[in-house]
């Protein structure tokens, strides 16, 4: 598979001299969904700002996009390849109306007016924002602003999409809707995604692989590999999905669950399989080790409570 983003030995210091990133190495393949996890202040946003050339390394290192050095690429080339959706939509929606905002990027790409209008219309219809074209951003709800931010970036048709905390502050319905939209973009258009999030329950749905970052890359792997690494989670203030924890508890009550599910879909499949193999029902009981196992389970997540 072709590499979309290659990061080698990247380092960065904030203007006050403190280290933000140190020897970061990453490989993101075309069409992959990568989630970056890490505690607050781990450098997630700083790393993302490097991926679209907004920040330049102060400590050496190199970034390549589709095999081409970012240093040698012009600003227009970079923005054409990499779209970034910022955490706060009010930072991103800076034009007076939604139409102007979505048109902003395509105009800067030097497209003809007709094509700009086509792209704006397409983005508006994909993200369900029809009828909002002339609205100023302060007349949109937070969820609508978030969708508008995504539409504004997607109108530039980038091959790589970077999302900083896409589900933060969204109500449950908007959150589910946005996760669906992100996954659809990846599945339908093959867009490579790099997502920073604290939303552990969304990670299994949003990621093919995870990079754990705490100034440097401390671990990488599939969601299953990362969520099973208890020590890693504990040392870096990371958490696991609720459904994963619930099935750990069920295990303590005697449920014979071979593979702990990371998402509700996996839970449904796993439960169905279990019930089918156990003669039409599952059996919960308190056995001699139940309390001991529950105590261990509790201690495992104590630092999170």
């Amino acid at each position: 598979m072709r590499e979309a983003i290659t990061v080698r030995n990247l380092g960065y210091r904030y203007p006050d001299g403190s280290k933000a990133l140190e020897d970061v190495n990453m490989d993101v393949y075309e069409g992959e969904r990568i989630v970056i996890v890490g505690p607050n202040g781990a450098g997630k946003t700083t790393l993302m700002l490097h991926l679209n050339g907004i920040l330049r390394s102060t400590e050496g290192g190199e970034i390549e996009l589709f095999g081409k050095s970012l240093e040698k690429m012009k600003r227009e080339e970079i923005v054409k390849e990499v779209g970034m959706v910022f955490q706060d939509p009010d930072d991103q929606l800076f034009m007076p109306t939604l139409f102007d905002d979505i048109a902003f990027g395509p105009i800067n790409l030097g497209l003809k007016e007709e094509e700009v209008r086509e792209r704006v219309e397409k983005a508006i219809s994909i993200f369900g924002l029809s009828g909002y074209e002339d609205r100023p951003p302060h007349h949109l709800s937070f969820g609508e602003k978030k969708k508008a931010s995504l539409a504004a970036v997607m109108a530039m048709e980038p091959r790589i999409l970077i999302l900083d905390e896409p589900t933060a502050n969204l109500d449950p319905w908007s959150r589910v809707e946005l996760i669906g939209m992100i996954n659809e973009l990846n599945a339908r258009e093959g867009i490579t995604m790099v997502i920073a999030t604290h939303d552990v329950n969304a990670i299994p749905e949003l990621s093919d692989r995870i990079y754990a970052l705490n100034r440097t890359i401390i671990e990488k792997g599939t969601p299953r590999e990362i969520f099973f690494d208890g020590e890693l989670l504990k040392q870096n203030n990371l958490d696991v999905p609720d459904v994963f924890k619930l099935f750990e508890v069920l295990r303590a009550f005697g449920v014979r669950c071979e593979e702990l599910p990371l998402s509700l879909d996996e839970a449904v499949t796993g439960l169905t399989k279990m019930i089918e193999t156990e003669g039409g029902h599952i059996h919960l009981h308190v056995h001699e080790h139940t309390h001991e196992e529950l105590g261990k389970w509790k201690r495992k997540y104590e630092h999170h409570s």
Partner: peptide
Amino acid sequence: ERGDRVYNALRSRGYTGNPRTL
């Protein structure tokens, strides 16, 4: 601080100092 973030967002969508509107 917001100004800083907005400027980053502007640059990441190709702002060069002269935005046009349709």
